[in-house]
Design a binder for these strands. Structure first.
Lengths: 181, 181
DNA sequence: GGTTGATCTGAACGGGCGTTCAGTAAATCC
DNA sequence: GGATTTACTGAACGCCCGTTCAGATCAACC
């Protein structure tokens, strides 16, 4: 059910997908879904929460200390790879935020902020080391994440560029964007 | 009606907003809207098309020749300013693409590509001049636009940073991202 | 002051929505 | 092999959807 919902929400949007449609995808009647989720809203929330928890857990594998430049490269490559591996969850996590009830929204927003802070810390450390020159670490973190997220809108496996090439191109731009003048 | 639809679509999403809700916002019954749009889908499409046409028209004010570095700066500042001035239209233009019927989608997609090509041309010219070093102009254009679009997700007038500061910070990162190593 | 034209109402159309729940069928256990 | 548990059906609930259209309202014109 969760897989079906993820796919359909990503394709058509939360509001446009009915419980009956999800049930049909599973091969079941709509009523049966309510043994697995209390309601549609909670289903959406749990998909988003699950995605964010996976993201934050996977980030733990990244180096938390050491040269900021190496940590920024590891982050950049990780971010691209992780997000390209689950385009549907990423898509929903950005598009369906407004369909979350306020308290659910707050939870997801908090998780997202945690992730952004991780990058911001790298930038601040690099600034202190003198290997980066960023006028505003918070804004720079948001800008870099926005740039990297852009990949998900056009990348298709088997296209003109390989994953490694995409990583390399973006790492090049990220590195230079925060470099001292 | 168009203003009401723009506001509500941006706030709640196309699928979640009914014609009755739009009509209520205008202060009219739902039936009355059909004197101004043939149907809901066309209303959405015309909002997106109008936004893209305005964007492409406004871009005409930018220099089309001259040093690539100056053109890139003009583009960067223009892009941020133009998009921050109409957050609702921008939001819809990214979020509601999937709710367009295929032929409507194709029209908007074409307009968007025109805009991206404008930036790509600047990058290619700068590459030829030797003032830029971008491994892939198409990807770089998409990445820079994604980065600049990110501003719309967090900027609020009257916040910590002024528009001029936001422009300056982003121009700094854009400039360095495409600079020779 | 009667006519025209534009604008909007209000009801109706068929249909889909999220959700609930009594009942059924099949698997598991003693 | 009877009892219990689990998983699902199918119908129903009240409600909202996009869209249509005959008729009301009213300002502008002759």
């Amino acid at each position: 059910m969760r897989a079906a919902a993820l796919k359909l929400f990503a394709r058509h949007g939360y509001a446009a997908v009915s419980m009956r449609r999800i049930a049909a995808e599973v091969g079941v009647q709509a009523g049966a879904l309510y043994s697995y989720t209390p309601d549609k809203q909670t289903l959406l929330f749990s998909l988003l929460e699950n995605h964010m928890e996976e993201l934050l857990a996977a980030r733990m594998a990244l180096p938390a200390s050491g040269p900021a430049l190496a940590r920024l490269e590891a982050f950049t490559r990780f971010h691209i790879r992780f997000h390209l591996e689950r385009p549907e969850a990423v898509f929903i996590s950005y598009m369906e935020l407004r369909n979350l009830e306020p308290e659910n929204f707050a939870v997801i927003e908090r998780l997202r902020r945690d992730y952004e802070t991780f990058l911001e810390t790298i930038l601040r450390d690099g600034d202190a080391e003198g290997v980066f020159a960023v006028p505003d670490t918070k804004i720079a973190a948001l800008a870099l994440i926005a740039m990297l997220n852009g990949v998900n809108t056009w990348y298709r496996a088997g296209g003109r560029l390989s994953l490694a090439e995409v990583e390399a191109i973006h790492w090049d731009m990220v590195r230079k964007a925060v470099a001292p003048a």
